[in-house]
């Protein structure tokens, strides 16, 4: 395999492992290394984290190679510090077990870390992939069974792709108003 492709695959795996640390999912296939497989159902990766991160709109794309490489450098240092022997077959961050990935991500996103902005941004876009699927239209995402939106129980729209809830209220007064409420309905 050409070296550039290997590098590209390693970076993709590393970013997938980061996304899977933020909102984890089940392994996509036996032997899936990037996804740690610590949660039932799909997670950020299956929800499209890499598509969101690579989208032109999001603005993260130009920084991804640097972030993936930086993530692996941090993983290498973390492993050395913790006495963990890394598996040379996969990138260093992917080689870490899930609990170690979590500890490293906590360290990277800590506000005391001068680099935290970048790692928090990465986490935000991974979250957005899961709970909003922002790389694709929401109507299409729901129709295609988008993992995150489905996991959250996000309701489907009407047939015209718009949301309307005809039944929306308990329909009765459920509390006493503040005694000093003004005639305009405001606090006094």
């Amino acid at each position: 395999m050409p070296r550039e492709i290997e590098t590209e695959q390693a970076r993709t795996m590393s970013l997938e492992a980061y996304a899977d640390t933020i909102l984890p999912g089940e392994r996509r296939w036996p032997g899936d290394r990037a996804v740690a497989g610590v949660s039932r159902g799909g997670g950020a990766v299956a929800s499209g984290a890499l598509e969101v991160l690579r989208s032109a709109e999001g603005g993260m794309a130009p920084a991804l190679d640097m972030l993936a490489d930086g993530l692996n450098e941090h993983a290498r240092a973390y492993a050395a510090e913790s006495g963990i022997e890394l598996d040379a077959d996969v990138p260093p961050f992917v080689s870490l077990h899930y609990p170690d990935r979590v500890l490293l991500v906590q360290r990277l996103t800590d506000r005391a870390n001068p680099e935290c902005d970048a790692w928090i941004s990465l986490a935000m876009f991974c979250t957005i992939a899961f709970d909003a699927g922002s790389h694709t239209s929401t109507v299409e995402a729901l129709a295609a069974g988008h993992v995150g939106l489905t996991t959250m129980g996000f309701r489907a729209p009407d047939s015209d792709g718009l949301w309307r809830f005809d039944t929306y209220s308990y329909g009765r007064q459920l509390a006493r108003p503040h005694p000093d409420t003004t005639p305009s309905g405001s606090p006094s």
Partner: peptide, 17 residues
């Protein structure tokens, strides 16, 4: 574990409604 991401956060999202 961590309070704003991770395994437990995903479980919380299952109850979003």
């Amino acid at each position: 574990g961590p309070s704003w991401f991770g395994v437990e956060k995903k479980e919380l999202l299952r109850r979003w409604q």
